[in-house]
Amino acid sequence: MNNKFPFRLYLVISEKNCIYFPIEEVVKQAIIGGVDVIQLREKNMETPTFIKHAKQIKAITTHYGIPLIINDNLAVANAINSFGIHVGQQDKSPAFIKNQNTNLTVGYSIEYKQQLLDTENIKHTDYIAASPVFRTPTKTNTITEWGYHGIEYIKTISDKPLVGIGSMNKQTAYNTIKAGADCLAVVSAICASKNPQKAALEIRNEIEKAL
């Protein structure tokens, strides 16, 4: 297990993804069910509102001892002293972020093979995410659908902790971990569940069986 990113079940959450419960309730249930790291992703929220929102979520994650990662917005990550920040191709680069705040854990979405050879950004990244493992309605601009073979390939190129995201659920969890992913990032299977705690527990159980 990697000491910098030792997590197994990663919830990516936003208000719009929470169908049956308020976001605060989904966060609580997911943590009780086995989520051990959370990313708050609010792409369309203005920074002052995002900061206020993130502070509310961080109060919950801190209570449970769970790290909070902010998607893309460095100002928000710094304002709330988050555990980390996650960026993709259209966001500020890992190298830029590390130069601004070396304390942040930086995650980086890998969407095509060439990115793995970008040594400047990879060396400033604490974990990488194969995005997506399988196509999903929550990601409309898919470049590469990695699949299980793609996970295997990435592990031959990089020793960074690898997070699988994209249609991660209790049906795909076991095989994604077996293919080499260290952690699974889940959106709809938990956020849109009528029982987020149970959904998280079922996925966590599949992860543990595969380890």
Rank of each mutant, 00 (worst) to 15 (best):
99 N>H: 10
197 Q>W: 05
94 P>G: 00
126 D>V: 09
7 F>V: 08
95 A>L: 15
91 D>Q: 05
5 F>V: 15
6 P>M: 12
16 K>E: 08
70 I>L: 09
120 E>D: 15
8 R>N: 10
186 V>S: 11
43 K>C: 01
44 N>S: 12
70 I>V: 03
156 T>W: 04
3 N>F: 08
185 A>Y: 13
95 A>Y: 14
157 I>L: 11
58 K>C: 01
38 I>Q: 07
63 H>K: 13
185 A>Q: 12
147 G>Q: 11
143 I>K: 15
120 E>G: 05
1 M>V: 13
142 T>C: 15
117 L>H: 06
135 R>W: 02
28 K>C: 09
105 T>F: 04
27 V>I: 14
174 Y>M: 06
185 A>N: 14
55 K>Y: 11
193 S>C: 14
206 E>K: 07
137 P>G: 08
75 A>H: 14
93 S>D: 01
28 K>F: 04
62 T>V: 00
172 T>E: 06
191 C>F: 14
174 Y>H: 12
27 V>P: 00
157 I>A: 04
208 E>F: 03
48 P>D: 01
162 L>E: 11
71 N>F: 12
28 K>Q: 11
13 I>M: 14
94 P>V: 02
132 P>C: 12
3 N>E: 11
128 I>E: 10
55 K>D: 02
198 K>L: 09
168 M>N: 09
74 L>S: 05
26 V>F: 06
197 Q>G: 03
80 I>G: 04
205 N>D: 00
129 A>N: 03
94 P>F: 05
199 A>F: 13
157 I>H: 03
7 F>D: 08
83 F>C: 11
141 N>D: 11
194 K>Q: 10
198 K>F: 08
190 I>G: 08
23 I>Y: 13
53 H>K: 15
121 N>M: 12
138 T>G: 02
139 K>I: 09
122 I>Q: 09
154 I>K: 03
76 V>K: 15
166 G>L: 11
33 G>V: 05
203 I>H: 05
110 I>E: 01
104 L>G: 13
71 N>H: 13
12 V>S: 08
163 V>M: 10
64 Y>V: 01
129 A>R: 00
153 Y>P: 00
18 C>N: 08
147 G>E: 08
153 Y>S: 00
182 D>W: 01
143 I>C: 03
45 M>A: 02
40 L>H: 04
27 V>D: 11
175 N>P: 03
39 Q>M: 04
188 S>C: 07
112 Y>L: 02
74 L>A: 09
114 Q>Y: 01
26 V>A: 11
17 N>G: 03
170 K>R: 10
37 V>Y: 02
141 N>P: 02
189 A>L: 13
31 I>D: 05
201 L>Q: 09
196 P>T: 15
65 G>C: 04
203 I>W: 08
116 L>T: 01
149 H>G: 03
198 K>G: 00
189 A>W: 06
18 C>G: 01
73 N>E: 07
134 F>H: 15
104 L>I: 04
205 N>Q: 02
95 A>M: 13
109 S>I: 00
184 L>W: 08
74 L>N: 07
200 A>K: 12
143 I>T: 15
100 Q>K: 15
140 T>D: 06
103 N>T: 09
192 A>P: 04
29 Q>H: 05
78 N>S: 13
206 E>R: 06
167 S>E: 08
152 E>Q: 13
37 V>A: 13
48 P>F: 01
59 A>K: 05
157 I>C: 02
